[in-house]
Write a protein that binds this DNA or RNA. Structure first.
Lengths: 182, 182
DNA sequence: CCCTCCATGTAAGAGGTTACATGATTAT
DNA sequence: ATAATCATGTAACCTCTTACATGGAGGG
């Protein structure tokens, strides 16, 4: 899905401004399958409004810049439902981190160790943040993706913690059997 | 990493043509963290050659189009090693599949079921293919990413298999406790 | 005093995708 | 027959990223 479809999906949960959509997309479980910036959202909303899939109205605020609150039109809701019937494109992951692990024999061991520890800490922080969000996830699909994401982060943390020693060891021969794949 | 860095990484394993690089990038464990097409690879190689990071020579072949075999220059190897010292950008996943699961209350149950079964079958096929590749993965970093990917696919397959019933059930109330998160 | 939050947008550029163009060989 | 493999590339397009532009409120 592109930025436009994501905006439609966010608005299907209720009317919102571009800024609020961005906040929603940045939180779990939305953030598990996409990563969208202001530079995509604002133009997407403008175009969706032109196409009649959303309507927006500027609202004056006290001591704040004006806010443009958008909501789905009937056409927008139909368009969103239709896009859900398309066969999903294959998942695509872009991971510098896995690239570094892949190339680890070309890297100084100390730096590699730092990168892995940093990643484990990042995952830990993510999990902590998810704990604080967990109560607010009520919809069934949202809960499913939320728990899938949480389980994935736990899996990744455990895999890295268990096997970092194997990757970082100085021995020239590293038997694949040493990897604990669970 | 962009297409240029990926080409450098592929060539660090030995000289290759654009076509051969594409094949390498499409196989595990390379395919676990990127997804690069001909339309990115050929222009990337042209530019890398202009920058002196790779050298290419056309080789005539019998009954085949000419082949341009590229190899890393010293400058190219240095450039690659330097790029490994940069802090890695955050991982980014784009998943239509998770988007569909997220929106599953807007979807016909039958279609949702099909999408999930298809995904499980795809993962099963991927795992079978990885089994047939496993012996050829010798480098330590390659093995690490390979096993991480394999474990991830198994995790995803198991999560979907265990919990699809929970997502697909007709009951209006679906207790989060019903999810088996392992 | 500085940072983060609120709030919107544009403009330029980088990067990637898709379709097109070509064509013999080999396997089913 | 038909599809896949081998083999390279270009051009148009689309999308996204990044930087810029603006500015008050409130917390540390």
């Amino acid at each position: 899905m592109d930025a436009r479809t994501l905006c439609l999906a966010a608005l299907s949960l209720g009317e919102a401004s571009g800024y609020e959509i961005k906040k929603t997309l940045d939180e779990p479980p939305f953030d598990h399958f996409q990563d969208t910036g202001f530079g995509s959202i604002y133009p997407a909303l403008t175009r969706l409004a032109q196409e009649g899939l959303v309507t927006g109205s500027a609202q004056a605020q006290e001591r704040r810049p004006d806010k443009k609150v958008y909501s789905l039109t009937e056409a927008g809701r139909r368009h969103l439902c239709q896009s859900l019937l398309q066969p999903p494109a294959p998942d695509r992951l872009r991971s510098d981190f896995l690239f570094l692990l892949f190339m680890s024999d070309q890297m100084p061991r100390a730096h590699l160790g730092q990168v892995i520890e940093q990643r484990i800490a990042d995952i830990e922080a993510k999990l902590a943040h998810m704990d604080s969000c967990s109560e607010h996830v009520s919809d069934r699909g949202h809960r499913f993706v939320f728990e899938l994401g949480r389980s994935y982060y736990r899996f990744l943390r455990d895999f890295l913690t268990r096997n970092k020693g194997w990757l970082l060891s100085e021995a020239t021969t590293a038997d694949a059997a040493g990897l604990v794949v669970g």
